[in-house]
C-alpha cells in the first residue's frame, strides 16, 4: 500500500506538469492581452508595452512558463493583476466561506439522498417508488438557477424565513446567511443523486448474496444497511470523492446570488479580468485537489472492499 501511494504521488508530477502547461498555453491563446486589460481604457501603445515588460509578458514563452513553475514550487503566486491583492490572502479569505457553504450542503445531500435511495430501492416497484422517480426526474429537469431565484424570492423575501443575501464572518452568525443556500444545494442534488444511488442499490439487491440473506431469514433492514450499503460503497465513493475538489472551488451561482464571498466568485472575476496569476493559482490548486481525492478514493476502495489490493 505504501509503495502504491508513493507511486501514485509520483504520477501526479507529470500530470500536474501537463495541467500547468495546458492552462498556460490556453491562457496565451485565448486570454486576450492582460497588459492591455490592466493598463486601462486610455492606455497608449507605449504604456501597454511598458506594462507588458513589467508583468514579464514580453519574455519568451518558455521563460514565462518556467516562472510559473517557480511560483508553484514556492507556493507564492504573487499579487493579482486586477485587484493588486495578495493571492494567498484572497484564497484564504475565500476558502472559509466556500467550505462553510459546500461542506454541509455536500454531506447533508449525501446523507439524505443515500437514505432516500435505500428506501426507494426497498420499495422498488411500489407506487411510492414510481412517484418518487417521476419527482426526481422533474427535479432534475429544473435549472439550478430556478431553484435559486424561486428559493430566494419565496423563502427569503415573501415568507421572510431567511435573510435575502449577505455574509457574516462570525462563525455562528454566518449560518443565518448560509441556511438557505445550503437548503437549495441539498434540494438540487436530491433528484439526480437519489436516482443514481437507487440504481446502484438495485444492482446490489439483485445479487445472489442478497437472495441468500433473505432465504436465511435476515431482516430487510439489516440486509439493506449492513450488506447492500456496504457492497454499494465503491460507486458511492467514486461519485462522492470526485466531487470533493469542487467543494473547495466553490459554487459560483450560490455565492453570487447569496453574497457569499467564496472562491467561486474569485475565480469568475479572475477569468473576466484576464487575471492570469489568480487563474494559475486556482487551476493548480484545483488540479492538485482533484488528484489528491482520486488517490484518497483508491485508498478508500481498498478499505471498504477486501478484494481490492493496492499494489
Amino acid at each position: 500500500m505504501f509503495k502504491y501511494v508513493v507511486r501514485r504521488l509520483l504520477y501526479t508530477i507529470p500530470i500536474l506538469f501537463g495541467v500547468t502547461l495546458l492552462t498556460f498555453l490556453l491562457f496565451h491563446i485565448a486570454g486576450g492581452d492582460p497588459a492591455a486589460q490592466a493598463a486601462g481604457k486610455h492606455a497608449s501603445a507605449e504604456e501597454i508595452a511598458l506594462l507588458k515588460a513589467q508583468l514579464g509578458l514580453d519574455r519568451p514563452l518558455h521563460q514565462q512558463y518556467f516562472f510559473y513553475l517557480q511560483q508553484i514550487a514556492t507556493f507564492d503566486f504573487g499579487r493579482s493583476w486586477a485587484t493588486k491583492q495578495n493571492i494567498s490572502s484572497m484564497f484564504k479569505a475565500g476558502l472559509g466561506p466556500t467550505l462553510s457553504l459546500t461542506l454541509p450542503a455536500f454531506f447533508l445531500a449525501v446523507l439524505i439522498t443515500i437514505s432516500l435511495a435505500l428506501i426507494l430501492a426497498h420499495l422498488r416497484g411500489s407506487w411510492v417508488d414510481r412517484l418518487s422517480l417521476v419527482l426526481c426526474l422533474a427535479m432534475m429537469s429544473i435549472s439550478f438557477l430556478v431553484y435559486i431565484l424561486a428559493g430566494q424570492y419565496f423563502l427569503a423575501y415573501q415568507f421572510s424565513l431567511f435573510p435575502i443575501s449577505g455574509w457574516d464572518p462570525d462563525p455562528i452568525l454566518r449560518w443565518t446567511y448560509l441556511a438557505l443556500p445550503i437548503l437549495i444545494a441539498v434540494v438540487v442534488s436530491i433528484g439526480p443523486d437519489t436516482l443514481f444511488f437507487r440504481t446502484v442499490f438495485l444492482d446490489e439487491i439483485s445479487q445472489d448474496y442478497v437472495r441468500t440473506a433473505r432465504a436465511k431469514g435476515l431482516a430487510e433492514g439489516r440486509i439493506l444497511f449492513k450488506h447492500v450499503l456496504r457492497n454499494a460503497l465503491i460507486p458511492i465513493i467514486t461519485i462522492v470523492v470526485i466531487r470533493m475538489p469542487f467543494l473547495v472551488m466553490g459554487s459560483l451561482l450560490l455565492e453570487a446570488f447569496f453574497g457569499i464571498p467564496g472562491l467561486g466568485g474569485i475565480m469568475f472575476q479572475a477569468i473576466q479580468n484576464s487575471d492570469f496569476p489568480v487563474i494559475k493559482a486556482m487551476t493548480f490548486i484545483g488540479a492538485l485537489l482533484y488528484m489528491f481525492f482520486q488517490l484518497f478514493s483508491d485508498i478508500l476502495y481498498a478499505a471498504v472492499d477486501p478484494k481490492i489490493q493496492l499494489r
Partner: peptide, 8 residues
Amino acid sequence: SSWPQFTN
C-alpha cells in the same frame, strides 16, 4: 468572444 478577447 470574452471581454479580454474582444478588447484585444
